[in-house]
């Protein structure tokens, strides 16, 4: 008998702008294979998982056929990590005895607001400033990229400046702390 466990429900409607969207616990993620998939690390930032980042949108496990359907969403249109993530999902599913079918979904578009609190904390610990809340761009004045307040993940000082809009990957910018002198990556808020 085939038991199709419910997928996560986050993709039913486009989330409202600025609303933090936590991937709700689903029974699919309580299965061994679901958990193994959710724990796939980001290839560029291995301290965070695809669940932490909000890249994992849906997991459907078919116990009878040993199939698992996975929906992921890219952080950026051309993110080269997507292929590595897809291969890794297929690999961990195979290890648990399942065949994974991975599809990429563009809409609703990924936003840093989907990143879990745990993911943010892990990023900061790893030395990457977590993204600010996109919705917090308050006030009537257009806030330029170079005047955002970003705390240094090493010393905590907010005396930091942007070195470059773009960092080592599409999702990061490069900053420098003027208090402790350390350069660091910032996960861009989009």
């Amino acid at each position: 008998m085939s038991t199709v466990l419910p997928a996560t429900t986050t993709d039913l409607a486009a989330p409202e702008a600025g609303v933090t969207l936590d991937l709700p616990a689903s029974r699919a993620l309580d299965t061994l294979v679901g958990r193994a998939i959710a724990d796939v690390p980001d290839p560029e930032v291995p301290v965070v998982t695809i669940e932490d980042l909000g890249i994992l949108r849906e997991v459907t496990v078919d116990e009878a056929e040993h199939l698992v359907q996975v929906v992921i969403t890219p952080t950026y249109s051309g993110c080269p990590a997507m292929d590595a993530i897809r291969v890794r999902i297929e690999h961990v599913a195979a290890r648990e005895g399942y065949t994974a079918s991975v599809t990429t979904r563009l809409a609703p578009a990924w936003t840093t607001d989907w990143m879990s609190e745990e993911g943010r904390a892990k990023l900061a610990e790893f030395g990457i400033a977590p993204p600010g809340q996109r919705a917090a761009a308050a006030g009537p004045v257009g806030v330029g990229l170079s005047v955002r307040q970003v705390a240094c993940p090493r010393c905590g000082s907010s005396a930091t400046e942007e070195v470059s809009h773009f960092g080592s990957t599409a999702c990061k910018a490069l900053r420098r702390c003027t208090a402790c002198g350390e350069p660091f990556d910032e996960f861009k808020a989009i």
Partner: peptide, 20 residues
């Protein structure tokens, strides 16, 4: 070198659009 990365990253975004 920051511009190598910046222009490469912008190109990558465009390539992502193009692929779809």
């Amino acid at each position: 070198i920051e511009e190598d990365m910046a222009l490469g990253n912008i190109g990558l975004d465009l390539l992502g659009q193009a692929r779809v």
